[in-house]
Design a protein around this nucleic acid. Sequence first.
DNA 1: TTTAAAATATGACAAAAATCATATTTAGGA
DNA 2: TCCTAAATATGATTTTTGTCATATTTTAAA
Lengths: 143, 143
Amino acid sequence: MFSNSSKYAIKAVLFLAVHSHENHRIMVKDIAKPINVPQAYLAKLLQALSRHNIISSKKGPKGGFYLSEENNQHTLMDVISVIDGDDRFNTCLLSLEKCNANKPCPLHDLASPSRSIFLKSLSENTIKNFSRQIEKGEVFLPL
Amino acid sequence: MFSNSSKYAIKAVLFLAVHSHENHRIMVKDIAKPINVPQAYLAKLLQALSRHNIISSKKGPKGGFYLSEENNQHTLMDVISVIDGDDRFNTCLLSLEKCNANKPCPLHDLASPSRSIFLKSLSENTIKNFSRQIEKGEVFLPL
DNA sequence: TTTAAAATATGACAAAAATCATATTTAGGA
DNA sequence: TCCTAAATATGATTTTTGTCATATTTTAAA
C-alpha cells in the first residue's frame, strides 16, 4: 500500500503536527528516535518534503523542522505524492489500463468503493485534522 | 498493495481459470503474451505456484500449465501468500506494532473495515468463483 | 566576526524486487 | 529408442528502494 518511505514520512509529519510550532522547531534526531526511523534516511525525506513546502525548516542553531499553519492545511496525500510520486493510487489494483467502472477487473468492485473512501479521506482530511484527532485521544501515534 | 509479482501471478491464474482445463494445458509463452507479462519472469512465478500446488503443470510436448478442479478451489489469497509471503496484510498501514482496534493509529479506522472486507473476499472467494464471474460477463480481464 | 549547530546537497553503498539467461529434467511422438 | 517440446532449477544481471556518510551552507549567539 504505502512504501516504507511514505510510512516514515507520514509518521514524521504527524509527529511534527502534534509536537512542533512555528517557534518550536524539532531536529531530525529528535523526530527520528521517537518515531523509530533511521535518522539519516529520515533527514533525506524531510528535506524533500521541505523542498516541496509540505513542511518548514530553519537551518542553524535553534533550527529544525516544524509545520506552519499553512503546512497544516496540506493532506497526507500531498506527503505521499512528494515521496512516492503521483500515480501510486491512480491505477487499478492489477495495473490494468483498461479497467474502469464499466469494464471492471475481477478485483475492482471488491476493492472500491471502500478504496475510494479511503483515498478520499487521505486527500481531503488536512494534517491539522489528524493532529486534532490525536490530541483528543481519538487515535494514537504509538512508537 | 500488491507487488508486481502478485499482480502478474493473479492475472496468470485468472487467465488459466478461464482458458485452461485438465486436458487443455497452456504454455508459459501463451499465457505471458495475452496478459502482458515478461515470459521468463512469469515462468518463475508459475513454477513457484506449481511447486505449492496452487496450479498444475505437465512437462514435455503437449505440456503446460492448467488448473485442476482442486486448484480451482484455492483463493487469490493463496496465490498472494505463495508469491509475497504471508504477512503482507497482517500489519498496520503504518507498520506500527502497537496499533490495534483499541489504540488505533490515525489511519486505522480510515482503512478498516473496508480493508478487512476486501481481504475477506480475497481469502473467501474461490478462483472458480472469479472465473464464473468473468464467464458471465460481470467482470473483465482486459489485457 | 567567529564559532558551533542545524539543515541541505550529493553521492556511495546495501538490500530487495524484478528481469533475463541457460542448463537440466521429463514426457510425447516418430 | 531418439528427438524435440515443454516445465524446472539455478543463478546472473538490472533496477528500485532503502540506508549511510560527509562536505557545504545558513544562522543564532557569544
